[in-house]
Structures are given as C-alpha cells and as structure tokens.
Design a binder for these strands. Sequence first.
DNA 1: TTAATATATGAATACATATTAATATATTAA
DNA 2: TTAATATATTAATATGTATTCATATATTAA
Lengths: 116, 116
Amino acid sequence: MEDMRGEEREHEKRLEKALGQMPSEAGLAEMGARFKLLGEASRLKILFVLAAGELCVEHISQAVGGKQSAVSHQLKILKDAKILKSRRDGQKILYSLSDGHVITMLDVAKEHLNCD
Amino acid sequence: MEDMRGEEREHEKRLEKALGQMPSEAGLAEMGARFKLLGEASRLKILFVLAAGELCVEHISQAVGGKQSAVSHQLKILKDAKILKSRRDGQKILYSLSDGHVITMLDVAKEHLNCD
DNA sequence: TTAATATATGAATACATATTAATATATTAA
DNA sequence: TTAATATATTAATATGTATTCATATATTAA
C-alpha cells in the first residue's frame, strides 16, 4: 500500500519532468515534418544520389529509376524544405544538397536506427 | 563544346559514383520506415514523454493529450519497431524506450535538421 | 519565329495510415 | 463468480500524400 503510493508519486514526478522537457507543439510538428521528409524511399534515393554532387533532373530521374514528373514533385518538396537548392544552367536545372546536415542525419541513422 | 563533353563526362562519373554508394532497395525501405516512425508528432510526443522513464498507458495518454485507443495504436507501432518495450505490472502495462538510440536521433535532429 | 528540349505544374487517382467508437481481453478486487 | 479497471483490437472513416498523365513554361537551336 505504502509502496503503491510511493510508486504513484514517482510516476507523477516522472510525468511532470517529461512534460517539462517536452518541445512545444510547433516544435514537435516541425520535427515531425523534417523526419517525414526522410521517411520516404524515393526521397532518400534522391538525397543519396545528390550526395555525390550536383545533378540535373534527367540524371536524377535515371539514377533513382523514377519518372521525370514524380522526381520533379519530390525535388520541389525537398527544395521547399531547404534541404536542396537548385540553379539553372541553360535548359537544365541542377540540384544539389543545401549543406551537409542531411548526410550527417543519414549517417547517424545508420548507426542508431539500425538501418543498413 | 569540349567543355560540354567534359561536363557530361563528369556528370556520368558522378552518377556512377552515386549509384555505387546507394543503399540497396531493401536498405532504403528500411531506412525510410525508420524515419517515418519519427515523422509523426503524436509518436514523437510519446518518445519524449518516455524519455523521462517508464510509464503506463493511461499516464502516457494524459501526457500527450490523446485518447487511450489512439495512444495504444501508436504504442503498438513503436513496440513492433522495437523502439519501445513493455512489461505488465498488475493491471497496468508499463512502456519504456528500448534503448538510448532514439533519443540520440532526436538530439542529432535538433542540431542538424534545425528543429527547436 | 518555330521546333526541340528540359523542367514544372495541375488535376485525378490510388494508396497508406492516423483516429475514432465499439468491443474484446486480461487482471484485480469484492 | 461478478464487477471494475487497464489495455488491446477491430472495423470504419478521414486525411494525407505519392504517383501519373497531360499540359504549361522556359530555354536553346534552327
């Protein structure tokens, strides 16, 4: 009985602590949105391809084995999220990673999310 | 013209390199699935709550502000993915993080995915 | 200007999945 | 055993979103 009380109190404490360090609703949404971007094999493929360097849409499509239209849509999503940037070179649009952060994430994921 | 040729060759090389270091289809799917688990605010909330320690379903539900049923569903998903484990204590089922890996991911995400 | 090429976009479709309500199962208390 | 409590599960619904097709836009070449 006394034990029960103590345990309950401990749980209450834990709850308070948890709620205290919980990110804001907006923060959680933002974080979820970021992870969601990486939660799709088609987008991951694109990121791995671009890890090797700047490439045009056609080449990216070839590399990931997807239709131009589908790839364009995904590129837009990744660019809107600032994960990719692009520049025009003649008729082509060359896409590249905005920075190394995403690759870092993928590396850490391999280690800590047991992906291979 | 020569420039064009050289550039094209460079792109070909880059493509080969990219394809060479691309994870397998299965690996990409696995990785995507892992990220997808973290790509939902409702699940992130649960993980942050459990970062404070073991808690029963009712308390988790209170903490994340969700219905028991919805939380149970998400707990099952996270447990099936081995991110959470559970044990029975009387009528209650206590859930906890399987290990520290997920928290590491969340921390790295804060740094590299500019979440706050 | 016209044709050809590269990319982007809009709308429709298909599919995945989060949530809910209702109910089933399991444990404890009476 | 019966009632009460805690959790899990099933089926239905709703929502989000990836993909496709068709077409628009933009650039270069003829």
